[in-house]
């Protein structure tokens, strides 16, 4: 069963979240086929989808008179199913390493080891300072220049272990 976690206590954060959720619902409309785009938008603007966001979104989306029926569990089910939606708080920057076969055979194996060593993180972890979250991502489709990784929306291709310190240094 999906349990609603504690609401973040910081007033400012909650207010921002409300605005983000409202804007996302406003933009995509309260229809069933807009649920995933709405969650993507919240995830992008807030960094992840906290339980509070799901509660807010459900309130706006559930409209029995319009025949749009949705539960919090259903929305949480979406947020936990799709890889690009995060239900846990992420760091200020998300490093996503492509773990697909073409990258793997082009030096990805060594690079993945070096990334974990450099960041001192394993997949799915966030550092204590909240700077980086490390994740793996499925094929990004730029296999001609593997191995590749994403830092936030920036794509780095033909990455070698030696370049890592410099690349990560760009992100505060």
């Amino acid at each position: 069963m999906f349990k609603v976690a504690e609401v973040p206590s910081q007033a400012g954060q909650t207010k921002d979240l409300t605005r983000i959720v409202e804007a996302a619902v406003e933009k995509h409309g309260a229809h069933a086929d807009a649920f995933i785009p709405i969650l993507l938008e919240i995830n992008r603007d807030y960094g992840y989808i906290p339980a509070e966001a799901i509660r807010l979104a459900r309130k706006l989306l559930h409209q029995p008179e319009e025949h749009v029926l949705v539960s919090e569990g259903q929305l949480y089910g979406l947020a936990s199913f799709y890889h690009m939606l995060h239900t846990e708080k992420t760091g200020r920057h998300v490093v996503q390493f492509c773990e697909s076969a073409p990258c793997h055979v082009q030096g990805g194996r060594e690079l993945w080891k070096a990334i974990r060593q450099t960041l001192r993180l394993e997949a799915g972890e966030t550092d204590p300072e909240g700077r980086f979250t490390l994740k793996t991502v499925s094929c990004l489709g730029v296999c001609g220049v593997g191995p590749v990784m994403l830092v936030d929306d920036d794509l780095y291709a033909n990455v070698t272990p030696e370049q890592l310190t410099e690349i990560f240094g760009k992100y505060e």
Partner: peptide, 21 residues
């Protein structure tokens, strides 16, 4: 319609489910 990162959505019935939200 945009996916949100799920390989299985390339399967046609999964793709249809995803389009329906």
């Amino acid at each position: 319609r945009m996916g949100a990162g799920a390989f299985v959505c390339g399967e046609e019935t999964a793709l249809i489910a995803s389009i329906e939200g």
